[in-house]
Design a protein around this nucleic acid. Sequence first.
DNA 1: CGTGGACAAATTGTATGCAATCGTGCATGC
DNA 2: GCATGCACGATTGCATACAATTTGTCCACG
Lengths: 235, 235
Amino acid sequence: MPEFLRVPAAGPGVARARRTRRPGTTRMQELRTLIADAIVCGQLAPGMPLEEVEIARRHGVSRTPVREAIRALAAAGLVETRAHRSAIVARPSSERLRGMFDVLAELEALCAGQAALHMDLAERQELQALHVALAELVQRGDPRRYHEMNERFHGLIYSGSHNPYLAELTLATRTRLSPFSQMQFRALGRLHLSHAEHDRVVAAILSRDQAAAAAEMRAHIAAVETTFERYVESA
Amino acid sequence: MPEFLRVPAAGPGVARARRTRRPGTTRMQELRTLIADAIVCGQLAPGMPLEEVEIARRHGVSRTPVREAIRALAAAGLVETRAHRSAIVARPSSERLRGMFDVLAELEALCAGQAALHMDLAERQELQALHVALAELVQRGDPRRYHEMNERFHGLIYSGSHNPYLAELTLATRTRLSPFSQMQFRALGRLHLSHAEHDRVVAAILSRDQAAAAAEMRAHIAAVETTFERYVESA
DNA sequence: CGTGGACAAATTGTATGCAATCGTGCATGC
DNA sequence: GCATGCACGATTGCATACAATTTGTCCACG
């Protein structure tokens, strides 16, 4: 029984009368982002069941939007569904995780290489600015905000590829791996290394060196994967 | 109003009492594959609306499974949905199509390279056998069966990468492009060229030459894209 | 004659009730 | 003691009714 996903001010009874939601958004969309965030943040651990009636009751909605949200997350690979069985938070095997990391490395390398070719001036300036901001967070030793800014850093490179489909695919893969790769920033030593790797990526992109940008990004993701593997072994 | 997707023996009234479906499968799954096939085969043209009540009536089911099937296809990128608006068969812009082809080329190249490294003996033999079978279809000038076998050929390379996630991603991308890339086999001249490109790919994989396999596959997909672009221009 | 707003129709979004299906546990026979 | 069949409980799968929202249209007004 997931103790998470609780609506902030749920009364003792059924939490009816959901607060106003922004126009143009459906309950399904709200639930989808809510559950997705809970999964990628690690609040919902892999293997944990997502029962429709349970979630519906917690949020004061019917099963229908909950059901659709779960199906959407299943299509995105964040949860696994079996017929007539509760959906569970996705729990890929270590072999599959390794394969996903390998693909992420290639996709990110592609993005970086394309970004080196196609980023315009404004994008290059923004990339540099974000890189500087990340340097400060390394100095301050703020893993939480570093992780947040790090996502934006990579996202900027995705969109800098000027290939929306590539950007979507890469972001989706990163998201699916997010529940497993974010614990690495607990180790502060990783922050310095991560930023040093970023530095080489940024330099290559700003030099318009496609091959170098791809290679440096591939090495960066490989380092992230190695850190994760070590973490798993030690656990 | 989609005149397709008609259930074979639908009476004039509401087609109730759906024929028995294989145990372990849901109505939603049946509808999903049915609609997906109609889209990739080109029976449902891009931009065509998919109204829930219409499809539900045609197949003698309620809106619920139809709705879920459509959402699943939307997640797979085959249809587009807007709030309170009929879903339509996906109609990507030419720029987006180009970006998707570029990504497909890279993903297929990755698969081919990994297949060169990781395919076992049985897989290599099957690849060679399929390649020979394709040669015969080229001689016979049978574009329809060539297309079918061609799908199996590429699928074999996907699974030969021994990276299921990579295989899934590549197949999904190929499927999304399928409605736009299959018309190329109308031109019989393309069959010979396609098979010649395959030949170089197979040779590289069997030689365990990762770089060559990737390069040849990239060139093959690029040729497919060029053919498509030419076709679009002429239309 | 053009423009703004309100209204109506069509379609999806959501709620609820019932049916189907899968797993589990127990009783039963070997 | 172990395998097998059966019945029960829990959960999803599906059907139907109702609500919400968007869009197009029509009319009033500038």
